[in-house]
Design a protein around this nucleic acid. Sequence first.
DNA 1: TTGTAGGCGTTATCAC
DNA 2: GTGATAACGCCTACAA
Lengths: 342, 342
Amino acid sequence: MRIGKGRITAAEVARRAGVSQPTVSLILTRNPKARVAPETRERVLRIAAEIGYRPNRLAQALVARRSFAIGVIVPGFDNPFYARVLSGAEKVAAEAGYAVLLCEMGALDVLQHLNALRDRQIDGVILAGIAASTLPAAALDDLNVVLINQPSTRFASVGGDSLKAGTMAAAHLLGFGHRRLAFIGPASSIPAFRFRERGFVQALRAAGVSMPGELVVRADASIAGGLAAMRRLLALRERPTAVFCANDLVALGAHKACGAAGVLLPRDLSILGCDDIEMTTLVTPELSTIALPQRELGARAVRLLLRQIEEGPRETPPAQVLPPRLVVRGSTGPVAIPGAAS
Amino acid sequence: MRIGKGRITAAEVARRAGVSQPTVSLILTRNPKARVAPETRERVLRIAAEIGYRPNRLAQALVARRSFAIGVIVPGFDNPFYARVLSGAEKVAAEAGYAVLLCEMGALDVLQHLNALRDRQIDGVILAGIAASTLPAAALDDLNVVLINQPSTRFASVGGDSLKAGTMAAAHLLGFGHRRLAFIGPASSIPAFRFRERGFVQALRAAGVSMPGELVVRADASIAGGLAAMRRLLALRERPTAVFCANDLVALGAHKACGAAGVLLPRDLSILGCDDIEMTTLVTPELSTIALPQRELGARAVRLLLRQIEEGPRETPPAQVLPPRLVVRGSTGPVAIPGAAS
DNA sequence: TTGTAGGCGTTATCAC
DNA sequence: GTGATAACGCCTACAA
């Protein structure tokens, strides 16, 4: 084992400085009420620096009964959305001296991951892309939790305004004159998707536009899902003229299906995504979308979590909701003039 | 604080079972040489299960002098490549009961991250996309290390055969009749990129094809980098007929530049990437590439690391190299017949 | 077969 | 001002 062999302990520093070990600890923690002789402090600090003493955070954790680590649980990285969220989260956590324990669903399920995190005395958990409501009630007991992209009365949360995203999508497409609109999205319990759909449907209804059942297509929140779903839509006798997708991956899959079928965007069909991941600018035409600040979500989630850890939970859990932003690129446009076929 | 309040300890189990705490420990660790009365074991196990006892892994770590956690350090998630590697790594680690501490470069540099990991008594570290040779010699001392995609005499490593990837790229493009070939890649010290370039150049040279300096373009290993680089190539008096890119992101950027410039792939130009990330199938035509098994790299890296942790380092560090695989899609093709312009 | 003693590296609370 | 002493929760001897 190469590990943990000759690590320098506070006791070692104490020995060399000719003081007791607790004194070293007292000085090193810079405790305000540490009333130590200046020359002692000097000497201890010098020696500690010389021999490169670094406190064992595990030992600190044991006595402090907290680990200075947080867990982040995500469904998977196939969706770059979570990669970005994670990136923002890691940055803030690292700067604050917290470690990020990464948990991806798949090998272990959420509950197992939560248990593993508990066993490590995790200080808090961030849940992204996983519906807290599908978990057993006790699963999150006694944990500091921040939810991403799902409002909750029980837990703190930060997310984009999914309902509004749906509304904006509807407004954008209606504004182009579309009246036969479709939606592609998962039937999953993930709140963000449900709210996007609901916002979209409500806005359509408010505008007096109805969406027949055949135009709501269920699909995995993935490229493959979007592709399959769009194929179904294209096979319809009467196609939609515009499609809002639950997220960009789905939209990109739909985009691809159109390319394969020779359907020209946005002339024959408009496609609108949601999230604004990098891939959106890769395709031709580039994908219009409703942008969510992904890294910012991760960053804020951690800040919220750290505050909760350090100040204790609030009576009423804070909920930050960030405004979505419409990004018009090339995949959406006005409805084609009938009969003006090229 | 919601944390660590009423956690059940082994002592508590012992009290209820009417045995001593070490006995509980003895039974729970399922130590082979634990010769305990069957009924005692029975009772302890039952009570432990009843009150939901779970050992504190931090305390275990303290005495075991290891944390059952590994660190993974990556440059960033902007490149889905690392997301996939991470995904593979996390899966194996989680199944083995190890935690994954995620470190992204940026907020903290590698050295700071390494220190933070050391302080947490990390059992080992996986380095991806970061040249170990650029680190101070002592930075990785006394650590179990596995490098991804960079061979090393000092550390264990797992990676694709980058040199061969370059060779295969050359063979593929030469096979289509291309003789004016370009390379786009970073000037970075990341070994994988250097080897891909070297393999490519060497294979060309071996085939008697030279690559003038103007056809080797330096660019960030990103979409933006590839885009800018391809613009430069397209501005050349005499354009290349085929381009090999250091990775898929660069290739996608190049792909995009061609789309914008009206250069038709693969008729006017062939583009070949490397890695095989999901995005490659999103563009039209889909990107041909040299595939590397990304999740597998992550998974193997962890397995190698765990073995090293559990069995101690080998005299000669193991190096697994996985064969790259050519994936021909639509972005590469035969050189256009001169004069046969459409 | 089981309990007692000691220690892992800290921090916190006291006497001195 | 400083140094014992006692946790934190667990594990590994060794005694009983």
